[in-house]
């Protein structure tokens, strides 16, 4: 079981309120990602759940039990840290065994779980090495192994991939997702990378300045961002946000249109402009169109084989069915166009 409920949880550091009263439900078995820019309070929130920080107010329930005052060791949660936080003086085997040793798990059971975890994480050959002799990816796997063997009611991940290089990050992302599919244990995952959030989460919690901006599945956030902040944060490349007359035309203060929802033509379209920089990724091409008469440069996503060059004239047509409208307060206008 791993149901976590936050009721009016508040955190203040001195006079600074980093988390205003906040409510959140995390269901058993869910993969929840806290995402937001740095300083949004997502790590603090995770540490409150872990018990590494005291709450300044409110309650934290784990499986219905009030755990607000429970020390971290007794909450039955496992955490994977950004720096991996492996014990440098212990071998990989001892690192993984440590939580079981603390819980007085019988030796043969310890060995069985270590073997199983090592096999699942490709660490069998490294069990007798020290963390210092491992690569970043291997260290990360040891940290995950150490978390798994506890059989916790929930896993907490604090930006676990941010110290890895891009290629490894994609690999580890898949491994963590697979792990979740296999274990079906609740996972709470903190990241500033919206790609990680989109690819891994069952439920994304977008945070800004300690506030929850929106909670929903990745596709809900993609399709119906509740406000400008979420609209700008979710999706890559970023949604084009246009204001002024172009938005007024659609009865909004700001309109948002994703790069993939803009049609490109050499002859006709809503907006005419010149191609600036274009980025060819092979499968896709992102190009940036200027001189449309709009204040903003427009990002457009097209197929990989499109033949456009710097300075070419193009015509762009937004797909109005996929257009997002926001009012003066930055909130979504729900009514369809």
């Amino acid at each position: 079981m791993g149901r976590i409920t936050l009721e009016n949880v508040t955190k203040r550091f001195g006079d600074v309120e980093v988390i205003p009263p906040l409510n959140l439900d995390i269901d058993d078995g869910e993969f929840v990602v806290f995402v937001g820019p740095s300083g949004c309070g997502k790590s603090t929130l995770l540490r409150l759940i872990a018990g590494l920080e005291d709450t300044s107010g409110g309650r934290i329930l784990i499986d219905g039990q009030d755990a607000t005052e429970t020390p971290p060791a007794k909450r039955g949660l496992a955490m994977v840290f950004q720096s991996y936080a492996l014990y440098p003086h212990m071998s990989v085997r001892k690192n993984i065994a440590f939580p079981m040793r603390m819980a007085s798990v019988p030796q043969d059971e310890q060995d069985r779980r270590i073997e199983a975890a090592a096999k699942a994480l490709n660490l069998t050959d490294y069990l007798d090495r020290k963390p210092g002799q491992l690569s970043g990816g291997q260290r990360q796997r040891v940290a995950i192994g150490r978390a798994i063997v506890r059989e916790p009611s929930a896993f907490l991940f604090d930006e676990p991939l941010s110290n890895l290089d891009a290629a490894l990050r994609v690999g580890m992302r898949l491994e963590i997702s697979e792990l979740h599919n296999r274990l079906k244990t609740t996972m709470v995952y903190v990241t500033h990378d919206q790609v990680e959030a989109m690819t891994m989460a069952d439920k994304i919690v977008v945070l800004r300045a300690g506030h929850i901006e929106q909670v929903g599945s990745p596709m809900e956030l993609y399709r119906a961002p509740k406000n400008l902040f979420v609209a700008g944060f979710i999706g890559s490349p970023k949604m084009n946000l246009l204001s002024g007359p172009a938005a007024a035309e659609y009865g909004a203060e700001t309109i948002g249109i994703r790069p993939e929802h803009i049609g490109v033509s050499a002859t006709t379209g809503t907006w005419q402009g010149r191609v600036g920089v274009s980025e060819h990724l092979g499968s896709d091409t992102f190009f940036y169109v200027e001189g449309t008469g709009l204040a903003e440069t427009i990002t457009v996503r097209a197929g990989g084989d499109i033949d456009l060059h710097h300075g070419d004239t193009v015509f762009l047509t937004p797909d109005t069915a996929q257009m997002h409208r926001f009012d003066a307060a930055g909130d979504r206008i729900a009514a369809p166009i």
């Binding site: 018990g51 590494l52 920080e53 005291d54 020390p71 971290p72």
Partner: peptide, 8 residues
């Protein structure tokens, strides 16, 4: 990390 218990 400063929880009430560790502080006292």
């Amino acid at each position: 990390m400063a929880t009430r218990q560790t502080q006292s």
